[in-house]
Amino acid sequence: DDLSYSFLQVARTEARITSRAGLAQFEAARCIRDLAGKAHSTQLAQLAARMTSAIRASSRLGEDPFLKIKGLIQDMLEKLEKEAEEDAAKKGFCDKELAESNEKKADKTNEIEKLSTQVDKMSSRSAELKEEIAALEKALGELASGQAGMDKLRFEEKEIYTKNKADMEQGLDGIKIALKVLSEYYAKADKAHSSADGAGGSIIGLLEVVESDFTKGLAEMTATEESSLSAYDTETKENEIEKATKEQDVKYKVKESTELDKTVAETTSDRSGVQAELDAVLEYLQKIEEECIAKAETYEDRKARMVAELAGLKEALRVLNEESTDGALIQTASLRGVRRHSHA
């Protein structure tokens, strides 16, 4: 009877162990199912379903599903831990690439802005120089035109002066000859013409006045010519200096403008090269952002979810392991009791 009682006690204990183990297994499955709902995790939901199916199948077959359930949880743990490691590595890669790409973007953008500023400044200066060159060339044209007018006027004045001077000198010479002849005539001792002395004196006086006028006119004409020639020479010299100065100014400004235009072309080409580099950086940055910047879930949210999932799986394993340990202790104690009864 005692032996029968002991076997009955062992059977009941084993049934209790099986019942407690089953409860623990279902509790672990429920824990994972709840976690799947909170985390909206399809993987955990599938795991919970597989655990429940394994428990029910083992119950029908009279098998212990503990190892299978533990294996399912352990596999999921390893899978999630691997995903977490890959996610962390991806996060590191993304942070590095995004930081470097944004830095390159800023550098290239700043470089383009500097080159654009240089191009604008040089282009503006070149345009100013071209305006100044045009103004100088216009002034040189006006100067040449003015000098040509002066040359023509001087030539005409010189011709008039030369002709008038010759006429005046010829007239003056004629008057001087007439005065000499008359003076000699009336100075003779022969008084045959004494009755005409009064008239002769008047004629000589008149000729002397005319001679004085001619002499004065010739002097004024010569002075005017000399003054005009001096003014012409002075202005011509000033024009030559102004022309040389302006031509030299044009030469330097043309040279500077040409060099600026060349530098503008080179700088524009450099800017195009930098722009191409920036376009490549922007294209890569867009690709990295699409790959790395989550639209629905950030890395921090994803990390928190995975931490919660891992914690839940570890908790499920703990429950199973504790129940397995408790069951083993109870089973050992029960078997010892059976042995004592059998020895008795």
Rank of each mutant, 00 (worst) to 15 (best):
L3G: 04
S6V: 06
F7Y: 13
A11S: 14
R12D: 08
L23S: 11
E27K: 06
A29Q: 04
L35F: 01
H40A: 11
H40V: 07
S41D: 01
Q46R: 09
I55N: 15
K68L: 13
K70T: 06
I73K: 00
D75M: 11
D75V: 05
E86L: 15
K90L: 05
A99Y: 04
S101I: 00
A106P: 02
D107P: 00
T109M: 02
E111N: 05
K114V: 11
D120R: 06
K121H: 13
K121R: 12
A127H: 05
A127V: 02
E132R: 12
A135I: 09
E137W: 00
K138I: 07
G146V: 03
G149Q: 13
L153R: 12
R154N: 07
E159M: 03
Y161N: 00
T162H: 06
K165I: 07
A166N: 15
A166E: 15
L172H: 10
I177W: 09
I177A: 14
V181S: 14
Y186K: 07
D190V: 03
K191H: 11
A192E: 09
H193K: 07
S202M: 14
S202L: 15
E208D: 12
V209C: 03
K216E: 04
E226F: 00
S228H: 09
S230H: 09
T234S: 06
T234Q: 10
E238M: 05
E238S: 15
E242I: 04
T245M: 02
K253L: 11
K255F: 04
T258S: 15
D261V: 04
V264H: 09
V274T: 12
L285N: 10
E291Q: 12
A294P: 15
K295C: 05
E300R: 02
R302L: 10
R302S: 15
R305D: 14
K314F: 00
A316F: 04
L320A: 03
T332Q: 14
T332Y: 07
L335E: 13
R336T: 08
V338Y: 08
H343T: 14
H343M: 13
A344G: 08
A344M: 09
A344Q: 08
